[in-house]
Computed example of a mutant assay.
Amino acid sequence: MSKVRVLVLAGYGTNCQRETAHAAMLAGADEAVIVHFSELLSGEVHLGDFNFLIFPGGFLDGDDLGAAQAAALRWRYARTSSGKPLVDELKRFFEAGGLILGICNGFQLLVKLGMLPGTGTEDFQRQVSLGHNDSARFEDRWVHLRTDSQSPCVFTRGLDRMYLPVRHGEGKLVPRDEETLAELEQSALVALRYIHPESGEATMEYPHNPNGSPSGIAGLTDPSGRILGLMPHPEAFNHPTNHPSWTRGDQAPLGIELLANGVKYLRTQM
């Protein structure tokens, strides 16, 4: 594929698809198309025609059964009009070298579908989940973040500290067990962490860590580095004036730098 073609999935409660598609174009993509889930089932649109897939934020199925749980079941068991499992098309997309980004509700979908952290012995084996915030309320605020330079994540390359907004009620990472959490750390699959703005260290202190995720985990990647899921919204920081203190001259790397890194990576593969 000679162009970076982005598919932004919509439907059943997503509400950030337009903002995400706009951010993808600002990040340098050649094309960003918003596609309803039903179009994949009908065969009107094929994942194989794209090389960058984004699951945007929102409230899939109203978060019934838990955030993105119903959507994960839909992906697991839905079949296309030709009778083939849709999840097999998703596997082929990834195996062909495609990038996958899950933002907020999209991150919740990726972990409940089992694509992140992706270290299981079986395909789509769930190892972590995302549960209710420790504050027991919806958190809408900006947070300080730090990337891991040792992470294989292609989206965070060359980035250090970031400042992005969060808006979620279920953002606390819940690993299956302590061994799973240890593996995430040892394999450098924690791509982003909530940090204290003064020390720059990962924090459990509220509100700097808005949900109580252990070790300040804000985003995960898989061993290939081509999948990233994060609770903060990079697409919502697409212009300097989005920064809450921009009138005071405060600046930070734009959130779309994460998407731009994805675009740059794909261009190196062409």
Rank of each mutant, 00 (worst) to 15 (best):
A70V: 15
T14W: 05
Q251E: 14
G169H: 10
P234Q: 10
L53M: 07
H196R: 01
S213E: 01
R141P: 01
E257R: 14
H46M: 06
S82L: 13
Y12A: 08
W75E: 01
L220Q: 12
P175R: 09
D148G: 09
G102I: 03
E179L: 10
S149Q: 14
G43R: 03
A188M: 00
V8C: 05
S213T: 02
H22D: 11
G249A: 12
T20E: 02
F55I: 03
E95P: 00
H132E: 10
S149G: 01
G106P: 08
S2G: 12
A202F: 02
I217R: 05
H243E: 12
R161N: 11
L41F: 01
K91Y: 11
G58C: 02
Q125P: 00
I217V: 15
P165Y: 10
L109T: 10
D88L: 13
C153L: 08
G255I: 04
R126A: 08
R226Q: 08
G83T: 13
L254Y: 03
T247P: 00
F52N: 03
S38H: 11
P240Y: 13
G97N: 11
D250V: 12
E201D: 12
S149Y: 00
H132D: 00
K172V: 04
M162S: 06
M25Y: 04
N133W: 01
A191T: 03
I227L: 15
M115T: 12
G13D: 05
V154D: 03
E178D: 14
K172L: 04
V143R: 08
E122R: 14
F52W: 05
L65Q: 15
I103E: 01
I195G: 02
W142D: 02
E170K: 10
F59Y: 15
I217C: 04
R92K: 15
S82G: 12
G216L: 05
L181A: 14
A136Q: 14
S187W: 03
L230V: 06
S199V: 07
I34M: 13
R5F: 07
W246D: 11
V143L: 07
P232Y: 04
L90F: 15
R74N: 00
G120K: 04
E235G: 05
V8S: 05
H22L: 12
V174C: 10
A24Q: 03
S82M: 07
G62Q: 13
L40C: 06
V45A: 06
Q150L: 14
N238M: 11
G118T: 05
Q17W: 07
S215N: 13
T221E: 07
R79E: 08
N242Q: 14
A202L: 01
K172C: 13
E205I: 09
D250L: 12
E44H: 09
I217M: 10
T121E: 15
R248L: 15
I100P: 08
L130G: 03
L259K: 02
G212S: 14
A218K: 10
A78F: 06
